[in-house]
Amino acid sequence: MNFAFSLPLALAAALLDVTVGYPQAVYRAIGHPVTWMGAFVAALESRLNRPTLAFEVGRASGVFALALYLGAVGVVAGLVSSLAPSGVVGFAALALLASSLPAQQSLDRHVLAVARGLEQGGLAAGRSAVAKIVGRNPETLDEAGVARAALESLAENFSDGVVAPLFWIALGGVTGGALYKAVNTADSMIGHKTERFLAFGWAAARLDDLVNLPASRLAALWLIAAAAVTPDASAREAWLTVARDAGRHRSPNAGWPEAAIAGALGLKLAGPRVYGDRLVDDAFMGAGRREADAADIIRALKLYRASCVIQALALAGAALIAQA
């Protein structure tokens, strides 16, 4: 890959995403690349997943489905990239396409809605807003639980919904970003540890863990750096909390940004949580207050926005070096 092209492309995608976002009119007319990928995954799963099969056979079927799916996404993305005209017009077209892959503006809007819900409508409104961004049952959450859920979602989605797509665009252009998004979409749909997906979704879940490893560490780094320039946040505590707690999280990736936010804001996140009817006994991230509130969500969003700026500056710097 030509980094003199892919790094500016990642920067342009980030700037377009945060300033323009994905137009609702376009979404209503043709959907979104993630919805197309999701439809493909659903079609493969309905045809190839047979929960009655032996575990090894179900896992092999899932590996085959994932390979078929990623191959198709890679071919389409590669063709689109190769057919783009050279020069400014082609770069702009690919940047617009790439800007559909990260979700800076969307994540900010959804997390802010939880804070506004708690402030203006109380627990019921907060639960309604947080239900749109988390997988756990919001009816089991009190106000502090709703706030913590929003903070944990912000942390995890900053890593896999913002940093990771831009990282893979920077490495592999539109094709790299599309393949990452395809893996992440497959994991969100079939990577669950339920009876139906335990075997078939095994490959998607393991690959998603792998491709998110670099981004989760970068996300923590951006958050630590942002804490140094964000009022009422501690870069030192963010660093110490990541070093102490990130590796104890059940996920190989989610603990890094969660620990960074918890440490920076003096909170205690994660810990035992209920997903559906299943209790997940996870380690705590941070050693601060457990009673989070709407004000903490606003503080976290300031940290998140500063992190996005720092990431954009890092991409700009890398692009300048690549052009030299």
Rank of each mutant, 00 (worst) to 15 (best):
F64A: 13
R47V: 14
V63Q: 11
F55C: 04
A25T: 15
G62P: 01
D17G: 02
R28I: 10
G31V: 05
G31L: 06
A54W: 06
G71D: 04
L44H: 00
R59P: 03
P33T: 09
F55T: 06
T35P: 03
V34Y: 04
E45P: 02
G38S: 06
L48P: 05
A54Q: 10
S61T: 07
D17V: 02
P33Q: 06
M37V: 04
A65W: 03
G71I: 06
L68Y: 00
L48Q: 15
F64D: 12
D17H: 02
L15V: 04
R50Y: 11
R50W: 12
T19F: 07
N49V: 07
A72S: 10
A60E: 12
Y22C: 05
V26R: 10
L70V: 04
A54M: 05
P51V: 09
A54L: 09
T19H: 05
D17A: 02
D17P: 03
R47P: 09
G31K: 05
A67S: 10
A29V: 02
Q24I: 09
V57Y: 09
T35N: 12
R28C: 10
D17R: 03
G21D: 04
V41C: 05
A67F: 08
G31Q: 07
Y69A: 00
A43V: 12
E45T: 07
L48T: 08
G31E: 09
Y69G: 01
L66S: 02
R50E: 15
G38N: 04
E56D: 14
I30D: 07
D17F: 01
L70P: 00
L16E: 00
S61G: 15
R59M: 13
T35S: 13
S61D: 15
A65L: 02
L70Q: 01
S46G: 15
V18F: 05
P23Q: 05
D17S: 01
A39G: 15
P23A: 10
A60V: 08
V34A: 08
R28S: 10
L53H: 12
H32P: 02
R50L: 13
L53G: 07
S61V: 01
A29E: 13
P23V: 07
A72G: 05
G71H: 04
Y27C: 13
Y69F: 12
G62I: 02
I30A: 13
G62E: 03
L68Q: 06
L53F: 11
E45H: 06
V26Q: 10
A54G: 11
G62C: 06
F64L: 12
L70C: 04
L48F: 13
V57G: 01
P33F: 01
F64I: 12
F40G: 04
G58K: 00
S46L: 15
A43S: 13
V57K: 13
R28T: 05
L70W: 03
T52K: 08
L53K: 08
L53E: 14
E56G: 13
